[in-house]
Write a protein that binds this DNA or RNA. Sequence first.
DNA 1: CACTATGCGTACCGGTCGGTAACATTGTCA
DNA 2: TGACAATGTTACCGACCGGTACGCATAGTG
Lengths: 204, 204
Amino acid sequence: MPRANNIDATISDSDQPAPRAAEKIMAAARDLFYSRGIRAIGVDEIVRKAGVTKPSLYRSFPSKDELAASYLRRYDRDFWERFDQAVEAHPGDPRAQIAAFLTRVGKRSQKPGYRGCGMTNAAVEYPETGHPARIVSEDNKKELRRRLREMAAAMGASDAATLGDGLLLLIEGAYISSQLFGQGGPAASVAKNADLMIAASLAD
Amino acid sequence: MPRANNIDATISDSDQPAPRAAEKIMAAARDLFYSRGIRAIGVDEIVRKAGVTKPSLYRSFPSKDELAASYLRRYDRDFWERFDQAVEAHPGDPRAQIAAFLTRVGKRSQKPGYRGCGMTNAAVEYPETGHPARIVSEDNKKELRRRLREMAAAMGASDAATLGDGLLLLIEGAYISSQLFGQGGPAASVAKNADLMIAASLAD
DNA sequence: CACTATGCGTACCGGTCGGTAACATTGTCA
DNA sequence: TGACAATGTTACCGACCGGTACGCATAGTG
């Protein structure tokens, strides 16, 4: 009975006890993968930080690549939670939803330790098509693109596809430039610039 | 007499003969680093592709990290060459200069094998402050930011810093999303979106 | 108690990593 | 032809990589 198959569920649904080790491993992997990159981190360092041993890792996760994919699936869930928070804060007002989301991204980008989007970073680290980690990232970005275009249409943009894509470019640019420049970087202006772009698109 | 110290110059200035092996190594490293990432490529694969041996690599480059930095310094030169081509094509018209540059980026982003900016990618792969590869990337991006703000000011933008940063966000977003989505991705609309943003900024 | 299931640790695997020592061979130019 | 610089050849290094065989400890159950 390979528990590794539904480890994502067992970790998140903490009512039914999962191996304690798996949670500690995931927590350690999350910190290390996010802050220093997936390729840069070896499994030894993960288990050391988690305070467990290597076989425990491989009982809960079939491989390092799958552990990375699990980390990203969790990242994906957290991402949509943040996104939907911004959406729900401004019902029926997509422009304000975008502004709320981007204001928060801009603020987070100024905090120390912020290194953009874990999924974007993973896609850069793993250009190979079909890599487990990459698949999670690509799916997330496709869905994000779809939702942004949808919101652009709801704003009444004449060219919703272009505006939605423009917003996506700004978001990804904010993620990346935050780790290129750190504090004081251009990501701080993402909300303002997005609003300018939206204004120009709606006036078109 | 360690030739490795000024290997960048000896490779680019081909009038004074440089070690043939160094050029072959650089060409191989360039292809491999760009298409598959720096961390993903081992020195063995580089020398194999270059048709040389490992000691030859370490006679021309002090380390793999320095080879990566050399690759990026070359990338930096090529980048500014492309950038300045767009600038020189439209003297005294910064808005057209940006449009020309971004149109080209948008087109390149639709070609197979395109994987964004090598320097951006390297910065994602090496978050560690002070890494030789990262330093080259950071310097390039700082200079790019400076020039974009300068151009935004020359356009007459009331808030040139914000517009320049917005353009930088769009550019970085185009680089990254090109490898997230490949052909048909949002990077194709970067020039159009930038022009919208500029228009809104100037009308402000 | 004995039995089983489960979670975990010790110790180890072959392979690859970046990097080097020592020496043979080549090509070039005086 | 001789000198010298550049490259190739071979073999090696310690460290680390992802991954695993196997045995031990504990908890729950009859």
